[in-house]
Nucleic acid binder design. Structure first.
Lengths: 342, 342
DNA sequence: TATTTTCGCTAAATCGATTTAGTAAAAAAT
DNA sequence: ATTTTTTACTAAATCGATTTAGCGAAAATA
């Protein structure tokens, strides 16, 4: 007993499938189908347990009600939570999400975009890796709507939703300064990513505004796919020196870095915040139950996800109507815990 | 300039689209298309930047190369990591993943299954919520292959991959006993979930085997969608008593519970492991940098995800060939850290 | 009564692929 | 020289919906 199709219903009632389609799409009135037939179509649809084939609908209408989501790694709680919000908003409008983890690898993301285009997704939400400018530029010339999240390329004019990274890092750094820290370090990722660069820029500006010279030795830029050993090296360079050269605080530009770093700091027998103060981007669970709960820059994940989806759905529903690109910058939330002392 | 179709290539070369299809599907030899034409088809395909429409393929062939994944919450790192492994294995075989978060809500999961069926997914991987037996039973009668993960229903004969929860909890409890703990508590979720029940059963058996009577006051079953206050209440009941009635150790049946509980314990000013020892299921990041890093029962997420996908793909590729249901039970890994003292 | 309008419905095209059945021309076999 | 086989290809059906154009009968209007 395989699935019933429109024709099955039509056949059973001796009517055309056009009629059945009209009835089941609520267009009975519009096409003045008689109430009697209407009832019977619905009854048979029920009886045969009919449910429309979205693939067939997709082929005919050109809308698959599917969105492609490309993020670095769905296992990373930051993207997981973002994905959740996006899913929720999508579901409210009958859309499904296909997710792809790019691992920050532009070849992968290019391949994933291609794959999703073949799958005829109605739109994309993308957190683009470094060196993916070209893919995004090509996408921008095409017809499929998309929104970038978390990062964007200043030179490409397209929808994006980001947070005010400069301001967030500035605030965090000022907080450390206000608590008397003077040798503040920053561990970050490849600065070609606009968001990472903004964070480090905000950090530097805060130092300058406090008349503290920026010491480039205190800025550790990790390689792309960073692991424990990279973080350990950075920590050693920052903390393994004589007292007056040592860092007395660190701003982590991502929680992945922060978690590995804190693990490392603990294993060196150092205490937070006594030996070293820390602040990190991203309000991840781990920071809440940490040795000394970590002061963080929380991102408005709910708002990012929801807004991205809303902009996307709006473009999908009004194709061709290129109003103008939506460039949204949201505020972060600075959450003070115990990792900076007082 | 819209996307090129098979017909566009055919038209351009003055050949049939049948031929084009054969060539592009590598069946040129089989249908003895001349090398010359073959070359030219490929050249034009390249020139027009042709890429097949998977929706059309899906409609014709009945395979969408899409898998539906239903888990409780993609934002939960446990499911996020699982999702990641599943995605990876799927991608290796050219399959995409549509994910749905059910929030452990059977109505939601029923609706999501229906939706995914309409989308003609080739298979499902599901972590079924309580009270979803009926949906799963119906699914088992249908034609679409599926695999359950993390939980299963003993009375339903279908593919599933779980871990040996009883054994894991037994081991963890014995570990606590060996360190001299005697009033060991367990905080868990609704015991209708087979996996949760097994965990608590394992815990109880370990106590009995050590000739310790099970004190039901030490087993706290949280409501379904548990929040901070529920956990706080449980912790208060366990630790807010006179010394000889107090718990001296707790086994958390999920990391979500554990994280909230540890936050709560810290805020009460209690020290782990001195005041209370803890062990938890799930080796989540948070536990690595915790006040005192938490001893955990790690689940083989990579293996669960990979195996589930492999079983599923195997069934998809050999439809009708119901070999037999695959019921896999994997071992967990007990990772000793500092949260139990020594 | 003749014409127009409304009513209730259907045929057929279409989306973009795959696949079965077949055909005309050339080559091989008789 | 005729038949058979092989070669190199094509027409058309199909998957399951949507949608345009239109048709015959009944009702309304002239």
């Amino acid at each position: 007993m395989k699935k019933a199709s429109l024709s099955d219903i039509a056949l059973r009632l001796g009517v055309s499938k056009t009629l059945v389609s009209f009835v089941l799409n609520g267009k009975a009135k519009e096409y003045r189908i008689s109430d009697d037939i209407c009832q019977r179509v619905m009854a048979v649809a029920e009886e045969l347990n009919y449910s429309p084939n979205r693939i067939a609908q997709g082929l005919r209408t050109g809308n698959t009600k599917t969105i492609g989501l490309i993020i670095a790694d769905i296992a990373n709680p930051f993207f997981g939570k973002l994905g959740r919000e996006i899913e929720q908003e999508a579901a409210r409008h009958g859309y499904n999400i296909i997710f792809c983890s790019s691992d920050e690898n532009p070849e992968k993301s290019a391949q994933q975009i291609a794959m999703l285009q073949q799958s005829q997704v109605d739109g994309f939400i993308i957190s683009p890796p470094i060196n993916s400018e070209n893919q995004i530029r090509i996408l921008a010339k095409g017809q499929i709507p998309f929104v970038l999240i978390d990062r964007f390329f200043p030179e490409i004019d397209c929808n994006h939703i980001v947070v005010d990274n400069f301001d967030a890092a500035y605030t965090a750094t000022k907080h450390l300064l206000s608590l008397g820290r003077r040798r503040i370090a920053n561990i970050t990722l490849n600065l070609d990513l606009a968001n990472m660069k903004d964070r480090t820029d905000g950090y530097k500006q805060a130092l300058r505004d406090a008349s503290i010279e920026v010491d480039e030795n205190l800025v550790k830029v990790l390689p792309f796919s960073h692991e424990n050993k990279d973080v350990a090296l950075a920590i050693n360079e920052l903390l393994g020196k004589k007292d007056d050269l040592k860092a007395d605080a660190i701003l982590f530009s991502t929680s992945k870095i922060g978690i590995m770093a804190i693990e490392c700091i603990s294993s060196l027998g150092l205490k937070i915040p006594d030996d070293i103060a820390v602040v990190s981007f991203d309000n991840t669970d781990a920071y809440k139950i940490c040795v000394s709960p970590v002061t963080v820059i929380g991102q408005p994940l709910k708002e990012i996800g929801k807004t991205a989806m809303q902009i996307l759905l709006n473009e999908i529903k009004h194709p061709g109507v290129k109003v103008k690109t939506q460039k949204v910058t949201l505020k972060t939330e600075f959450i003070v815990r115990k990792s900076c002392g007082s």
